[in-house]
């Protein structure tokens, strides 16, 4: 897993607070409406686990703007990773729950952080196995650079320049009890 071990890190800087996260989600929702001329045929698919929370928040905003409920699904990409047996740690497989057809839909993938692009590659493969969407877009709360694949996001909450040694941590009330995004740096390295 890029970013390495979680231990021995301390907070270097806060890059988004709760208000900034809320504003970013509102803006992304507006951009989704604008880009797709409304929300007709738009569905949101969040990557487990924080991408799912963000997708639900975007869906709430979309309903406020357009008055339409947009379906939200949850995608687990563990079975599509390219580092099985190579990574130091083996992630827990969680359930994919997409209770609607994505065939011919405009699918917006939602993730918290875009980094190497490998999770996004895995997510695209996983989605294609569920059907052929009309188009696929990517929304992320933070783009921290360092892509290893030709992938870019369509909607970005905030671009943050980082180094490989740092880790971007997205904390959301649903999982962590607080809304904030911080950069963690290794200590004593």
């Amino acid at each position: 897993m890029p970013g390495g071990r979680m231990s021995q890190r301390r907070e270097k800087a806060q890059i988004l607070d709760a208000a900034a996260i809320a504003r970013a989600i509102t803006r992304i929702a507006h951009e989704i409406v604008e880009r797709n001329n409304g929300v007709q045929d738009v569905v949101l698919v969040g990557l487990r686990s924080r991408g799912v929370d963000l997708a639900h928040r975007i869906a709430v905003k979309l309903e406020e703007i357009e008055g339409t409920k947009v379906p939200v699904g949850a995608l687990d990409i563990t079975l599509y990773r390219d580092d099985l047996g190579k990574a130091e740690t083996q992630p827990v497989v969680r359930r994919t729950e997409i209770p609607f057809s994505i065939i011919d839909k405009k699918v917006v993938l939602v993730d918290d952080v875009l980094y190497t692009g490998r999770s996004c590659r895995a997510a695209m493969d996983a989605l294609m196995d569920l059907g052929r969407p009309r188009l696929l877009q990517l929304a992320v709360l933070v783009d921290r650079g360092h892509r290893e694949l030709p992938i870019r996001a369509d909607y970005v909450g905030k671009n943050v320049p980082t180094s490989h040694q740092e880790k971007v941590q997205v904390l959301l009330t649903e999982e962590d009890g607080v809304d904030r995004v911080v950069i963690m740096e290794a200590t004593g390295a």
Partner: peptide, 24 residues
């Protein structure tokens, strides 16, 4: 417990049209 939890996630694949993941 870990095996049973993992199996819970695996069971979803049986309900798909395309019953194939690239894991192995």
């Amino acid at each position: 417990g870990l095996i049973l939890d993992t199996a819970t996630s695996m069971k979803e694949i049986a309900s798909r049209d395309i019953k194939k993941v690239p894991t192995l």
